[in-house]
Amino acid sequence: MGLLGPDKHSAYKKGLKKMDKGDFSGANQEFERSITFDPEFASAWCDRGVAQQNLGNEEESMRCYEKSIELDPDFIRAWHNKSALLYKMEDFKGALECMDRILDMKLKDVDRVNILNNKAMILSRTGSYTEALEYYNKALDIDPSNGVVLENKMELEEKLTK
């Protein structure tokens, strides 16, 4: 609570706690309250998208991610969540566009490796195996001992040798 009573941050924190407990409906309500206090609170929009997605409301979830991105065009988590939802909806072109947008941002090496790996996985799913291998290799250039990337690359290489 703020000095004058409930505020966007207290509602947002309550939403995060409810989401951690799996109470997505309750979390959604708290994120909505937070947005009522501040309609330009990008994190609340993004996490409301997560709650909506967990409630099975993909269309509303996408709207929340897009609103979050509109408010903060460099909000990596919102772009990543949007990409994951597009992937789930089998919009691989859209998911790849989100990955490319993230890769244009300033990222920590660990985050860049994760995004390169995700992009490679999407490319592999679309049958672009050579390009997927290139992205796995880019990730391994940054972190040669990353077990997840090594495992994904090995699985793809085994698939290609069959």
Rank of each mutant, 00 (worst) to 15 (best):
M1R: 12
G2L: 13
L3D: 11
L3A: 14
L4Q: 14
G5T: 12
G5F: 13
D7I: 14
Y12T: 10
K13Q: 15
K14T: 14
L16M: 14
K18L: 15
M19S: 12
D20M: 11
D20I: 03
D20T: 04
G22R: 04
S25K: 08
G26R: 05
A27P: 14
N28Q: 06
N28D: 05
E30Y: 15
E32D: 12
R33K: 13
R33G: 03
S34H: 10
S34I: 15
I35T: 09
T36N: 14
T36R: 11
E40F: 11
E40S: 15
F41A: 03
F41E: 01
A42S: 07
S43I: 06
S43N: 05
A44V: 03
C46L: 04
D47M: 03
R48W: 06
A51F: 10
Q52W: 15
Q53E: 09
N54R: 09
L55C: 10
G56D: 13
E58A: 10
E58H: 15
E58M: 11
E60D: 07
S61H: 11
E66V: 02
S68I: 02
I69Y: 15
L71N: 06
L71I: 15
L71Q: 06
D72N: 11
D72Q: 10
P73Q: 05
P73K: 06
D74Y: 14
F75G: 01
F75K: 12
F75V: 04
I76E: 07
A78D: 01
H80G: 08
K88C: 04
M89K: 14
E90Y: 13
E90C: 08
D91Y: 05
L96R: 01
E97S: 02
C98F: 02
C98E: 01
D100L: 15
D100S: 06
R101A: 14
R101K: 13
R101E: 13
I102L: 02
L103K: 02
M105N: 03
K106V: 13
D111C: 00
D111R: 07
I115Q: 01
L116P: 00
N117E: 01
N118G: 08
N118L: 09
N118Y: 07
M121Y: 14
I122G: 01
I122D: 00
L123R: 05
R125G: 08
G127M: 06
S128Y: 00
Y129N: 09
Y129T: 03
T130V: 02
T130S: 08
A132D: 03
Y135I: 00
N137E: 07
K138R: 13
K138D: 04
A139W: 00
L140E: 00
D141C: 04
D141N: 05
I142K: 03
I142G: 00
I142R: 00
S145G: 02
V149Q: 01
E151Q: 05
M154D: 09
M154N: 10
M154A: 11
K159Q: 09
T161V: 11
T161Y: 12
K162D: 10
K162L: 08
K162V: 08
